[in-house]
Nucleic acid binder design. Sequence first.
RNA 1: GGCGCUAUGGUGCAACGGUUAGCACGCGGCCCUUUCAAGGCUGAAAUACGGGUUCGAUUCCCGUUAGCGCUACCA
Length: 499
Amino acid sequence: MDSKTGAAGGAKSGPRVRFAPSPTGYLHVGGARTALFNWFFARHEGGTMILRIEDTDAERNKPELVEGILEGLRWLGIEWDEGPYHQSERTELYRAAAQKCLDNGSAYLCYCAAERYAGGDHAEEEGAGGKVRRVVRCACRDGKPTSAEGQPGVRFKVPLGGTTRFQDAVFGAREFSNEEIEDFVLLRSPRGEETAGQPTYQLAAVVDDIAMRITHVIRGADHISNTPKQVLLYGALGAEPPVFAHLPLILGADRTRLSKRHGATSVTSYRDEGFLPEAFRNFLALLGWSAGGDQEFLRTSELIGKFSLEHVLRTNGVFDRAKLEWFNTQYLQKLPIEELLPEVEAELKRSKLWKEEWASGAGHEWFAKTVDLLRPRVRLLPDFSSWSRAFFSDEFSYNEAAREKFWKKEPRLPEFLGQLAGALEALAEWNHDACEHALRGVAEAAGVKAGVLINATRVAIVGEAVAPPLFESMLALGRERVTGRLRAALPAVQESCKA
RNA sequence: GGCGCUAUGGUGCAACGGUUAGCACGCGGCCCUUUCAAGGCUGAAAUACGGGUUCGAUUCCCGUUAGCGCUACCA
């Protein structure tokens, strides 16, 4: 059995955890947080992280649905040590386990395929609210099948009395009355050509957690109610249950569970918008967990270093996009420049602005300085190719609002900008102070405030009202570009002045 | 309906019996300033309600209310 787990590989001795998503086509935010916390825990403890695909349901057993999950994990930088294992390939293991339960009397064959729980001791009841109360035991359990037709499924035989307990690292000691636990299905009744049924989630998860020697089950709090069933199964299969750690749910702004209704819910959509993975990790880490103090800006290495299940909250949290954006700007500004550069490079490649000359040597130096100049104003990666475009390309347009704001104040602007171009060309040295001196000289001679010229020049050379300080921008662009763009802008400025 | 979980500003987190209830996002103001950001200072804003326990409750207990989760031969 062990050989099928692939557990022979890593020789690590620490805890073993798993992230076990169901293939839904993409990794959603809640799943990402669960994966992240498993990963933090494994890395912090020197343990092993396993990836397991829970595709026992035929609907979900499709390769393309798994790919989206892997894509999300890769973007987040979450590395797993084993897997991905696919439950759809381990069916025999689950059938054997179901048979074991049948053999030792902890499960029974159930024929009530169509009408669930038709008959039985706890027949249907009308609830006070008019709703149908769940029936928890089936007549088949006592060997009195309501129908012997068709193929039977396998149900777990939950003890009639007593309680089931487990330890939760987040929620503490939990205890459930067995009366409240239904006889859940282990193996579905065989369909069509099948001679044996397909396993359900409850069975497959427990069998795998045992086989893979999982020590800590870290998952969403929506599984708390499932846990007693699984604890019972561990007992029936003769295994010790792991430590459970349930994570609070992530809610949308309306405080309901995060779903497609709330817009972007797939992590790759955040990648596509231009968020940095580390900013996203930092943000997600603080949803349901804190290091205990006031520190919020925590690099991933710090997150791993400080992570502990004891500090996981029990309260559901709301996904606050504004704060995510704040984290992104923080990382954009504070990341060591060499860590940011590859991200910007990828962005410029996406927008077809990238030039190979920036990959090394003097070109790379210029690129690094320019990105550093731009980054205090950037909120998302695409900003590097939108309003920063003129720094990387000669093809750019003048922002309409910027023209309105800065090219209409002074009718003689074209004249002054022409003078400025000349003054800059005449400069003996091309540096910040020389440029500033030249511009202020032109402004003084023209009798206008320096700001008028500064703002008008900015629009002329970068096309935007939003840009880094003018003289630094000029240095980044170089003398020829600056003077060339000043002259090239003249007709457009003329036009704006007249209007 | 049943079972379970939770409850600190609008949001995310601190304070694990004694604090003028702290930090951050967001929002407002001021400073800085050639644009826009960033940054600094600053303002408004919270312990759901009711009972206990205690010299003392945000903190412990009970109840109420509200929200959420589970209640499938989905996971």
